[in-house]
Design a protein around this nucleic acid. Structure first.
Lengths: 172, 172
DNA sequence: GAATCGTGGATGATATTTATCCGTGAATTG
DNA sequence: CAATTCACGGATAAATATCATCCACGATTC
């Protein structure tokens, strides 16, 4: 059982976008540079998040990605399912019925208890992920540090962050 | 995220062995036939279970595998970890620190909240698996059906089941 | 009309699954 | 008591699925 690296990238990008002021955009390339990961691979996962309606995309030269919903309306589970797919990790192949000497059919009326137990565990996993939103992560970050990432005014964001609406901000 | 098929095979074999009368043995080939799976692949996982001290192996012409402990002393988590390895599915690569314009070091004093949340979910998963023993599975089976698998006296078991000793003494 | 960005499919790399071979240990047999 | 047979143990290699990367296309802005 191994989770793909794309999960970590997608989660960090989502958190990053959540930390931007409302309407803030970042291009895929900017996020790839910021995290030091392959742009092509990141693109793939950003597209998955877009298709899952978690991100909204703004095309064109001043385009980029922004959250499609408020940070407290996006859970970690949303992101994980968008990238990894909705299927459970454990797929019961019903090998108990494969044998050359099958057991009486009455034995299989009941669902496979092994499958049931594995899916129960997986549901606990998802429940835990569903309980955490992007907003929660930002709050924890703000508690440990004293401000959101973007609020610190890194040169990186001054350079790459954009706004979805043409907002003529006075240059200071 | 996909769990290997070997997990299902290992779990079913463990449950099968647990359903045998005390001291009952089955060869790897017999279990592979019974489940209709590749013997070589199953062998690999049975060996993993042996190394994890979940199964005990009896060599020789009348040999095979039996449980190393009582069914209520083996949890699903034991089996899953023996096959999949102990490492968590989510490995934080700390990509937040990779960027060309690193954030101030104070930002990284706190552990990555994303990593923490993912590991918390994984712990919930394992806790759930740890709560179920092979004995629990047999009990559920007995409730749905009216007897354990082996107790039904299938021809298959009459043919392949063996006993480790003429005087089976349950080990602790 | 040219440059920039997101979209989608095609390609190579890596991990997983499957299959095969030979070595070791134990019980049966003569 | 030694040769034979059966079953596990471990290494190796081919086939397959998945992961990661790259390249061409259409859309949008300046």
């Amino acid at each position: 059982m191994k989770l793909s690296d794309g999960i970590e990238q997608a989660l960090h990008c989502a958190t990053l976008l959540a930390s931007l002021p409302n309407g803030g955009l970042l291009s895929a390339k900017a996020m790839a540079d910021f995290h030091g990961v392959s742009p092509s691979y990141l693109l793939k996962h950003l597209q998955a998040l877009s298709k899952a309606d978690l991100l909204h995309t703004e095309p064109g030269p001043r385009g980029g990605y922004r959250l499609a919903r408020a940070p407290d309306q996006i859970t970690l589970l949303d992101v994980v399912l968008a990238v990894e797919g909705p299927e459970p990790a454990f797929r019961c192949k019903e090998i108990r019925q494969n044998g050359p000497n099958p057991l009486p059919a009455s034995h299989f009326k009941a669902p496979c208890q092994i499958n049931a137990a594995m899916l129960r565990a997986e549901r606990a996993y998802r429940t835990e992920l569903c309980a955490v939103t992007l907003a929660d992560l930002l709050a924890d970050l703000a508690a440990a540090d004293d401000g959101s990432i973007a609020a610190r005014g890194c040169a990186f964001f001054d350079e790459h962050m954009r706004r979805s609406k043409p907002d003529p901000t006075p240059t200071t």
